[in-house]
C-alpha cells in the first residue's frame, strides 16, 4: 500500500514535469543569445527586440483584440437570448434546439471551417475581417449559451416580478435587474468567448482574406514554414503571457462566483 502511494506520487510528479517542461524550455530558450536550441549560451533580449520591433506582430495583436471584442459582444447578445429562452420558458422542440446548440461544439473545426469557406466562395462574399468574425461567432454562440445556461439555473425570477410590481417597465427591469444579476454569468461566458476567438487558428486560417492576420496566424505560418526558431520562441512566449493574463481573469471570476 505504501509502495503504491509513493509510486502514484512519483508518477504524478513525472506527469507534471511532462506538462511543464516544453513550455519552460520554450520560454528559457527565448532568452538565449545564440541561435542554438540545445545549448544555452547567454541571457539576451535580442529575440524579443526582434518581435517587439516587428510591425506585423503588433498589427496581428491589434487584429486579434478587436476581432475578439466584436465576437465577444455579439455572441454574448445572441447567446443570452438563447439561454434565456431555454431556461425560462418551456416550448415544443426544446430538445431539438438543445442538440442544434451542441452540434457546433462537437463537429471537428476543420470540417466546419472548410464548409464555411466554401459557402463564402460560393456566394462570392469577399474574405476579410468580417468573414473571420462571423466564423468565430458561429461557434462561440454555442459555448456562451452552454455556460450561461449552467449559471442561470438557479436564477430567482421573483426579483424581476418585484421590480415590475413596483412600477418598472420591461426595459428598466431588464437593464436594472436582470442584466446586473446575470453579470457573473455574462462575464464568465464573455471571457470564454474572447479566449476562443483570441486563440482560434483553424476558422481564421480558412475564412481570412489577403493581408488580414491574427496573432495565431502569424505563429502558425512561421511554425509551418520554418519549424522551431529562437525568434518564434520569443513570439510564442509573448503570446503565452497574454493568454495567461486572460486565464487569471477567468480563474478569478470562477473563484468569486463559485462553480
Amino acid at each position: 500500500m505504501k509502495i503504491m502511494s509513493s509510486f502514484l506520487k512519483i508518477f504524478t510528479i513525472m506527469v507534471f514535469l511532462f506538462l511543464y517542461s516544453p513550455i519552460i524550455v520554450m520560454i528559457i530558450f527565448s532568452f538565449n543569445e545564440s541561435k542554438s536550441l540545445g545549448v544555452f549560451t547567454n541571457f539576451s533580449l535580442k529575440w524579443y527586440e526582434k518581435v517587439v520591433t516587428n510591425p506585423e506582430v503588433w498589427r496581428a495583436l491589434y487584429n486579434s483584440f478587436w476581432v475578439g471584442a466584436v465576437v465577444t459582444f455579439v455572441s454574448i447578445v445572441l447567446g443570452l437570448m438563447m439561454a434565456m429562452a431555454v431556461t425560462r420558458y418551456s416550448f415544443s422542440g426544446k430538445s431539438i434546439l438543445e442538440s442544434l446548440i451542441l452540434i457546433p461544439i462537437i463537429i471537428p473545426e476543420i470540417a466546419e471551417a472548410l464548409s464555411l469557406m466554401i459557402m463564402y466562395i460560393f456566394l462570392n462574399i469577399p474574405l476579410g475581417p468580417v468573414t473571420v468574425i462571423i466564423g468565430h461567432i458561429a461557434f462561440s454562440i454555442s459555448y456562451v449559451t452552454v455556460v450561461m445556461r449552467a449559471r442561470m439555473a438557479g436564477y430567482d425570477k421573483s426579483i424581476e416580478e418585484a421590480a415590475r410590481t413596483l412600477g418598472a417597465n420591461e426595459l428598466q427591469t431588464f437593464f436594472r435587474i436582470t442584466l446586473p444579476t446575470l453579470y457573473p454569468a455574462i462575464l464568465a461566458a464573455g471571457l470564454l468567448a474572447f479566449t476562443l476567438s483570441f486563440d482560434d487558428l483553424i476558422k481564421t486560417l480558412f475564412t481570412t482574406g489577403p493581408g488580414f492576420k491574427t496573432l495565431p496566424l502569424v505563429i502558425w505560418s512561421s511554425a509551418a514554414r520554418g519549424g522551431v526558431s529562437p525568434e518564434l520562441n520569443s513570439l510564442s512566449s509573448f503570446a503565452l503571457s497574454i493568454s495567461f493574463i486572460f486565464a487569471l481573469f477567468r480563474l478569478r471570476t470562477e473563484r468569486s462566483v463559485g462553480r
Binding site: 516544453p22 536550441l37 483570441f198 486563440d199 487558428l201 495565431p216 522551431v228 520562441n233 503570446a239 493568454s243
Partner: peptide, 20 residues
C-alpha cells in the same frame, strides 16, 4: 491555459533534433 497552438509549438521545441 496556454493556447492549443502554443502548446503544440512548445512540444515542437522539445521534439526537435537540436533540442536541449
Amino acid at each position: 491555459w496556454v493556447s492549443f497552438l502554443l502548446r503544440t509549438y512548445a512540444m515542437m521545441s522539445i521534439l526537435d533534433e537540436r533540442s536541449i
